[in-house]
Design a protein around this nucleic acid. Sequence first.
DNA 1: CGGCGATGTTACTGACCGGTACGTCCTGCC
DNA 2: GGCAGGACGTACCGGTCAGTAACATCGCCG
Lengths: 195, 195
Amino acid sequence: MKTKTVPPRAADRIRETARDLFYREGIRAIGVDEIVSRAGVTKPTLYRSFSSKDELAAAYLEDYDKAFWQRFELGSGEHPDDPRAQLRVYLEGLARRATQSGYRGCGLSNAAVEYPQGDHPARKVAEANKRALRKRLVAMAKAMGAAAPDELGDGLLLLIEGVYSSGQLFGKGGPARALVAIADRLIDASIPRKK
Amino acid sequence: MKTKTVPPRAADRIRETARDLFYREGIRAIGVDEIVSRAGVTKPTLYRSFSSKDELAAAYLEDYDKAFWQRFELGSGEHPDDPRAQLRVYLEGLARRATQSGYRGCGLSNAAVEYPQGDHPARKVAEANKRALRKRLVAMAKAMGAAAPDELGDGLLLLIEGVYSSGQLFGKGGPARALVAIADRLIDASIPRKK
DNA sequence: CGGCGATGTTACTGACCGGTACGTCCTGCC
DNA sequence: GGCAGGACGTACCGGTCAGTAACATCGCCG
């Protein structure tokens, strides 16, 4: 009970507000003034918790990364020994979200578009997430019994990234609706017949 | 011969410079001052040819759209009656470009990330291009004899957009290297056996 | 030669950007 | 009760943003 029972909200509110605004509007499009005003705090408060806007953006992406893995691993609990079913849970949820109007894609991929230079703190978080995702997908492909797990893993990654991107371009009736069927077809075609 | 033999360079140089800078660094990241200084012109000159930065961005994307279709239809000349081979030509070139370091993805998709609001002139160009591409891919899938052309067309679009996005995230050894093999597998699995 | 359109020059605007020096208030502890 | 220290706000900084006004200069064409 030494830790404050009401751990001063300011920093958390800033993080939440930044998360919403950065995701919906883009990082470069949102100024710190708008963040602090919507969060009901002031700029010095923000800069006491984050050394710069870039660091705040990186923190936002760290949060996003955490939330992503939570979504991605949701199927692992439901189907502990069936990697294909695990992946399917994520793909179905993704296809649903990505075919709603207002979908904004992946915050991490979007950040990489906004910050092309490799040394930006936000980009580093994005790249690390994508490398981990690629590794995870290859591992899943291997567990599915794919003849060429690297290839299937990369194929799945291409499909997923394609959904992030096209989802925000097409909205409601977009190509993401075909995701599950396409992934199924691709996986089938990549696993040696087990008959 | 009434049209000027040397149509004053200024507007064209601005367009070219904007194209390079917007593509490599992003639209929001580049100010008009940098464009005019690199183009060797001055701001009033820019604003005599383009009513605003947003319109200049739209013009850049129009140019990009034109160049895109040129690349995309490159295989149509080489293989007039083989849609699968036509597409393959584009995919091979794309996979090559997207696995080089410094690849920046698709200028149109990137612009849509930078400008999420549907009424922005740049986004309109991007969306129109993507709708046309989707239509073209479905038509190609149909011409290939796909059982479900809409589905295959959308699957190909997902793969292509996935390459744009992941190409700029992974660079040299990225998942784009699997593009051609994956597309082949997917197409094979989507066309009724013709044996 | 006269004139006109395209371009350059200079200087400026008001808004907004990220970031900060400094004062104030509130809380907990002796 | 009073003081220390942390949390927060007020007010401001210099720089950059997109966009413009007023005027000078060049070169082509009649």
